[in-house]
Every structure is written in C-alpha cells, then in structure tokens.
Computed example of a mutant assay.
Amino acid sequence: MIQGRLGYNSANDRYGLLVSDLWENDGFHCGEPLEVLVDDKWVGTRMEMSIDHEWYLVDTPYKGDLEYIQARIEK
C-alpha cells in the first residue's frame, strides 16, 4: 500500500494522493478505490462527485474539502 494524504490538484481539478509533497496519484477519477482513515480505522471508499460538483468519499463523513485526509492506495 502507498500511504499519504489527499490534496487538491488545480492542474486537473481533482483530488490526488500526496506522499512527502509529491504526487503519487495526481488525480482520482470517479469510482476509483482507495482507503481513508476514519476514527483511527482504515475504511474502503471511492472518490465521487455530487450533482452540485462537490467531491466526496462514499460511505465516509468526508465531503467538500478533502485536503489532508490520510489515505492509501494499492501499489
């Protein structure tokens, strides 16, 4: 697993995965799987965009500003 934090990439208007301030994934597409830390537990989720163009993570409390959320993806 590759672990880092979510960050907004203004070059492609998507959230990606940053590791040591370098893009490991420069932008998730809708439906792409990842895991995020929720209450100290890793939860499987996927990135989606609402009808009003707000990014959110399915089955988590996270929506809107997703900056700095701890996340990981398969290598």
Score class of each variant (00 low, 15 high):
S10N: 10
G7N: 03
R72W: 01
G64A: 11
M47I: 09
P33Q: 04
V43T: 15
V38S: 09
D59Q: 08
D26M: 09
L17N: 07
A11Y: 07
L17T: 09
D40K: 15
E24M: 15
W42P: 00
Y56W: 12
K41N: 08
Y68E: 09
S50M: 05
L57C: 13
D26T: 10
M47G: 06
R14H: 03
S20P: 06
Q3V: 06
V43W: 00
D26L: 07
P61I: 11
E67N: 08
E67C: 01
H53K: 14
W42T: 00
D52Q: 12
L17A: 10
D65M: 04
Q70C: 08
T45G: 06
H53R: 13
P61R: 05
V43E: 12
N12H: 03
Q70F: 05
M49Y: 14
L18W: 04
D13H: 13
D26S: 15
R46V: 08
M49H: 13
D13N: 14
T60G: 08
C30W: 07
V38D: 13
S20W: 08
E67A: 05
L22M: 08
G64Y: 06
C30E: 15
Y68N: 13
D39T: 13
H53I: 10
D13Y: 05
V36I: 11
Y62D: 04
V19C: 09
R46M: 10
D13F: 02
S50K: 05
I2P: 01
C30G: 11
E32F: 01
S20A: 12
H53M: 14
D40Q: 15
W23F: 02
V38G: 07
C30H: 11
W23N: 03
R72E: 00
S20M: 10
E32R: 07
D21W: 15
I73G: 07
F28D: 02
S10R: 11
G31Y: 03
M49F: 14
N9S: 14
V19W: 04
P33I: 01
L57D: 12
H29K: 13
I51V: 12
L57Y: 02
G44D: 10
E48D: 14
E74K: 12
Y62I: 02
W55P: 14
V58I: 09
G64C: 10
Y15N: 04
V43Q: 15
V38A: 12
